[in-house]
Design a binder for these strands. Structure first.
Length: 422
DNA sequence: TCTGGGGTCCTAGGACCC
DNA sequence: TCTGGGGTCCTAGGACCC
């Protein structure tokens, strides 16, 4: 029998902040989204105060003040680095590990098949991760990934579980699934949850016993897969070597409305640069791209405009200058005067391995020269900090975002290393 | 006044081909 | 006036995840 363990970091972003700032221990913390807009992570104490995931900061201001909630801007450089350390630690315990999956920032599946003393082993993993990285994790153990997710929830909630819960026992599965709300199952979202409830399926045990044909007509093959997984039949295998990405998006909301094409162009050029960097980092090239722009949907009293445009490129590329040329034209094509824009973004799609592209018969650009130039730019920005060298099209002021309460990038920036005083 | 960003997979339906 | 059938590929949109 297969045995999966799901290792999930507790309140990951909040825990990361605590690693370098122990004064935050035991205090309610929220970490904010881009522009300091919404709460995207909360410590246990903040959750207990009733702060919901995604709550706009201005709506929770009274709770924040009343309970002295520590409010922090997001610091993804720090979280990404600590995530990598957690994953590296987990990899010490088994070669069968799924990292870099789309859920990778704070969780990883491990294949523990064939091991005995599962709970002891999991405790050892938990202790080691905490000791080596400072991040507390919870571990759920079960014969399928979906059940391991359920087990992980219990590991987090039950005080007596002490961070580890083993759900391999069939009788225990029945008991636990009966207490799990149907929308708390991995893969069942709000929509499906509501639909299931109208058919009197409100917990995971009822879903487990639902009719297969009926589920497939209602929820499609994904839903059916979930039901089988709940029954202990593994449908989702461990992807130890996940497929390459299909798309790379960079988009941001503005901290204030933007009306001029010039500003939008500068923003789009900035996002294009970032997306192209990601592409080169993954050694990929894009054969197509989409650019979109939108007004503020929360301001329905103002005129609304959303548009996007798709562009196929003659030759796959990851050259920033070339891509900015295309995205700049694209944004101009969908821009309409007289709107207050809130957000714009760039998606690079149809990604192919950079060394395997189909050249164009009438090619005029010198690909080798462009590749070398990009390499130099990437190296300079890596060594001297992001944005040290940039394309003029990205503009001189890059002040769309707001991050007023960001903690230092303790582990990824020389100037911001923590200092230990004797 | 202030409301995130970046992904995946599946399905339906259109375009196109023979 | 009559106007096939089956297959593939692609995209948009929905649902979901963290």
């Amino acid at each position: 029998m297969k045995i999966y363990a799901l290792v999930d970091c507790n309140n990951f972003y909040a825990s990361c902040e605590r690693v370098f700032n122990p004064k935050l221990e035991g205090k309610p913390i929220v970490v904010l989204s881009n522009n300091d807009g919404c709460a995207i992570a909360r410590s246990q104490e903040a959750k207990a105060l009733g702060i919901e995931m995604g709550a706009p900061l201005f709506q929770i201001q009274s709770i924040v003040q009343c309970h002295q909630v520590r409010v922090l801007s997001s610091n993804f450089a720090l979280y990404g680095d600590l995530s990598a350390r957690v994953m590296a630690t987990l990899a010490q315990f088994t070669p069968e590990i799924e990292i870099y999956s789309i859920y990778s920032i704070d969780e990883a599946f491990l294949d523990l098949s064939g091991l005995t003393q599962l709970v002891d082993y999991a405790r050892q993993i938990r202790t080691t991760v905490k000791q080596w990285t400072g991040i507390p994790v919870s571990i759920g153990i079960a014969p399928t990934k979906t059940l391991a997710k359920v087990a992980n929830r219990i590991a987090k909630r039950r005080v007596d579980a002490n961070g580890v819960f083993d759900l391999t026992d069939k009788t225990l599965q029945e008991e636990v699934l009966a207490q799990t709300a149907v929308e708390d199952i991995w893969g069942i979202g709000r929509k499906s949850g509501r639909r299931l409830r109208t058919h009197c399926i409100s917990n995971a045990l009822q879903l487990r016993h639902a009719n297969e044909q009926w589920i497939q007509t209602q929820l499609g093959v994904m839903g059916l897969r979930t039901v089988l997984e709940l029954r202990g039949i593994s449908c989702l295998s461990l992807q130890s070597c996940p497929a390459a990405k299909h798309a790379r998006t960079v988009s941001r909301s503005f901290s204030r409305p933007v009306e001029s094409l010039a500003e939008l162009k500068a923003a789009v050029a900035t996002y294009t640069s970032r997306a192209a960097e990601k592409l080169r980092c993954d050694r990929l090239s894009a054969k197509a791209l989409t650019v979109f722009l939108m007004t503020d949907r929360f301001h329905q009293d103002e005129p609304q405009h959303f548009d996007s445009t798709y562009v196929e490129l003659p030759v796959a590329t990851s050259d920033t200058a070339e891509l900015i040329g295309y995205t700049s034209q694209a944004i101009a094509a969908i821009y309409r005067e007289g709107y207050r824009y809130k957000k714009t973004g760039v998606t690079l799609t149809h990604l192919v391995a950079a060394n395997l592209f189909q050249a164009c018969l009438f090619e005029t650009t010198d690909r080798e020269r462009s590749r070398k130039l990009m390499q130099v730019i990437d190296r300079i920005n890596q060594q001297l900090g992001a944005g040290t060298i940039a394309f003029a099209a990205t503009g001189l002021r890059q002040s769309w975002g707001r991050k007023e309460m960001r903690s230092p990038r303790y582990t990824t920036c020389w100037q911001e290393l923590p200092v230990v005083k004797a």
